[in-house]
Design a protein around this nucleic acid. Structure first.
Lengths: 335, 335
DNA sequence: ATGAAAGCGCTAACAT
DNA sequence: ATGTTAGCGCTTTCAT
């Protein structure tokens, strides 16, 4: 593979001149420029970005740290981050943590190693001190709410308000036994959504029943299905379910169908995330739809600014969301 | 950020010794090792991988080039590739091409720039010469079938046999008007699956009807829904549909439901890819299930061998698959 | 406008 | 067993 030196030798100029041409510098004598460009072509030169970055002190990489790509929300988000990063000439390195504290800590620790300019992290189990300990001085943008208050840039929607809106919607349908699936011992977003659920119930004058709040240690379809099975075993099963993500909701729909329940007549269901698959479910899924493109774009932009000037106060940006009402709570049923 | 030199100065030894300790070299005097380790700790040294790789002539990166992460098949595969790559101490750079030749060419061209050791490419529109032109000398492993015969390592399932098996299954249910959705002007996998579809029909003594073969330029849910709407508008609509991926099939199920058709009684549906979502559909989706973990693992391994010795003859590895029979063709209906 | 040379942080000869 | 040094490919002073 041809290097700058090879090209310089072939063109009969210095490395500097070739570098100037390659980097689009203005003042190069036309004759030299022509010869360099010819040499560039015949050698098929391509700059070694590693070397360039070593010299420049930036790597051109950004790490995207997330639980797992099989979760559609993260796959969709990752796709959008890739696009947003491209606009800033950043390559994206995706790291899966599997959502465990172990995995998250290990990944965070591996970031210290200079090959990234910064990281966008979607934490689940991480604690505040982990960041300082494992990735000191590394520009980080955090996605979503987190139980601990970190002095880091952060992007996400207002989960409390979003949950309130979802539950208020169920209340407006006349539902009174509204369950929640997705309570979690330490996930920040789960805590926020639970808070919104409770405050909406309280505002509607409905009682808070502990047996209607189901914990889910994971947010996969099977966990939703299992949780719904338990809720249906209650003496008085719910007439509506608010799920903390769409995957849980899909599991819920499945279990409901297997038990012969009609959705939304017997039980209305709301999800969270607006995965593409929800629109094709039967019934299609009512869900909280965060503006994922805005999240991706904002995160990348925040990271860029953080990289440029490290000593800014941390920012928290709230991105918009809306409630997408579909068949699982709507009048037209697919049940 | 501390460098090797800083550590050496602090420990009162040479950089070589520090390097030896960092890289786990055996022969370091215990006293020196102790001092180096101490200096390592107090400086919080982390190796600059960029510099290391520049020197070593490898980058530690592998590019995974795929159409888009919102397609569950690619998201699932990407997750598995990340895992497989980790075992070889490779970081993975994901590039989305959006499945266009433009996008694929642009991505391929950007690979030439030395920051990757090799690439795993899932092409859709690429032509043979693109590889030679745009990424000359770069170790590449191709995923899936491709219309053009390339002298490159390749991993995939036997799409012809897989399609045959799917269609044979529909035939065994007594279906006679079996449609196919997903014919495509240049995708290699589409051509193979179409071939399998045709040969299975021929083997069963069923006529090949052109009106039952639907082209899909994209393989998203909405494309399946649209194609199914057209098939149902035929004077004699199909009694079974073989879709070239699960997303198309999900769209088909949706359209069928909207028209009040029962699946599988009125129309049986088979997909391809075994996305997680298919198991939770109502009815759950019968599908061709490729062993994605095997694909990911094999691709990474093939790439490693290609990087190590460039002058091996290209290999083609076929990974296993099986037909996963569920409700959309099975006796127990969810329709 | 261009050349010479230093140096980014690291590893690998080569010495000792 | 460890120190010295060259050099990976590039950008960037500093000269000229």
């Amino acid at each position: 593979m041809a290097t700058l030196k090879d090209v310089a030798a072939l063109a009969g100029v210095s490395v500097k001149t070739v570098s100037n041409v390659v980097n689009g510098y203005a003042f190069v004598r036309p004759e030299n420029r022509r010869r360099v460009e010819e040499a560039l072509l015949t050698t098929g030169y391509r700059p070694n970005l590693g070397a360039r970055n070593l010299r420049r002190g930036r790597t051109g990489f950004l790490a995207l740290v997330l639980p797992e790509l099989v979760v559609p929300y993260f796959a969709e988000l990752a796709g959008l981050v890739l696009q947003a990063a491209q606009a800033h000439e950043w390559n994206v390195l995706i790291e899966q943590t599997r959502g465990t504290r172990e995995g998250e800590r290990a990944t965070l620790a591996s970031l210290g190693t200079h090959l990234i300019d910064g990281a966008i992290v979607s934490p689940e189990a991480l604690e505040a001190r982990d960041f300082g300990e494992l990735a000191p001085g590394i520009p980080v943008v955090v996605l979503g709410e987190h139980s601990v208050d970190l002095p880091l840039d952060r992007v996400g929607i207002d989960n409390v308000r979003a949950a309130e809106e979802a539950v208020r919607h169920l209340v407006s349908l006349g539902r009174t036994r509204i369950a929640a699936i997705g309570a979690h011992p330490y996930r920040g977003t789960a805590a926020q959504r639970l808070r919104g659920y409770r405050s909406a119930l309280a505002a509607a004058g409905l009682p808070l029943r502990d047996e209607l709040v189901a914990t889910a240690l994971n947010y996969h379809r099977r966990d939703g299905a299992a949780a719904m099975a338990e809720l249906l075993a209650l003496p008085e099963p719910p007439d509506a379910v608010f799920c903390f993500n769409d995957l849980l909701a899909v599991g819920v729909l499945r279990t409901a169908a297997e038990r012969g329940l009609r959705v939304p007549e017997d039980v209305a269901v709301v999800g969270f995330d607006n995965n593409e698959e929800g629109g094709y479910n039967r019934p299609s899924l009512t869900t909280v739809a965060p503006d994922k493109a805005a999240i991706a774009h904002t995160a990348v932009d925040l990271l860029r600014r953080r990289v440029e000037t490290a000593d800014r106060p941390p920012e928290r940006v709230q991105t918009p969301f809306r409630l997408e009402v579909r068949e699982s709570t709507g009048p037209a049923s697919g049940g």
